[in-house]
């Protein structure tokens, strides 16, 4: 359906168009001149070389936390796939006969192509097993399959380093998300 758009009747000078063209040209050239003489007029960040300072609680790629014995904290409770609005988390649960935690994720896949980085999975996790504090946002791959981050990838994502965000939270605890723990305690 066509909607009537309220429009103003143009004056003669406006409909002659020539003056309006000149006005437009003055506007655009003023931008060019400003940009030549004032390098601060545009603040484009020249991305691969310069990087934007990150928000304190920036949500980057997911990592899975481990217990001191090296097993993942996750017990496959299915809270994150349940709460995930993008339905990007796939967990296959299994039983570990030797582990007091009984249940563990045999497979834990996150399809990063589907993920919308809302952070609900982190909020929902009762075991603090998944976090998005890695600040990794350059998530890319050559195939769709490689965009699915699996359990071992997410466990080893930080390669043993502490995420940068943790230092920020430690220095200024008021910025840390509720329930953020610094010591990775074993499950009782």
């Amino acid at each position: 359906m066509a909607l009537p758009v309220p429009s103003r009747k143009m004056t003669t000078i406006e409909s002659a168009y020539l003056l309006e063209v000149v006005k437009g040209l003055v506007l655009t050239i003023s931008h060019v001149i400003k940009n030549i003489f004032d390098p601060d007029h545009f603040r484009t960040i020249e991305y691969p070389d310069m990087k934007k300072p990150m928000a304190v609680r920036y949500r980057g790629a997911h990592r899975l936390l481990t217990r001191p014995d090296g097993k993942v904290k996750c017990v496959a409770c299915m809270c994150c796939p349940t709460v995930c609005p993008a339905k990007c988390i796939t967990i296959i649960a299994g039983e570990d006969p030797d582990d007091p935690a009984e249940k563990f994720p045999v497979e834990f896949d996150i399809d990063m192509l589907r993920c919308i980085y809302c952070g609900f999975c982190v909020e929902a996790c009762p075991k603090d097993a998944i976090r998005m504090d890695t600040r990794i946002y350059e998530i890319n791959a050559y195939t769709r399959q490689d965009m699915v981050h699996n359990k071992s990838y997410m466990v080893n994502l930080m390669e043993g380093k502490k995420p940068e965000a943790e230092d920020v939270y430690r220095a200024n605890p008021s910025t840390a998300p509720a329930g953020y723990t610094f010591d990775e305690k074993p499950i009782p």
Binding site: V75, A76, C77, C79, A101, E102, K103, P126, K127
Partner: peptide, 8 residues
């Protein structure tokens, strides 16, 4: 232990 309980 609801996270690992099947009754959840």
């Amino acid at each position: 232990d609801c996270p690992i309980c099947d009754q959840s």
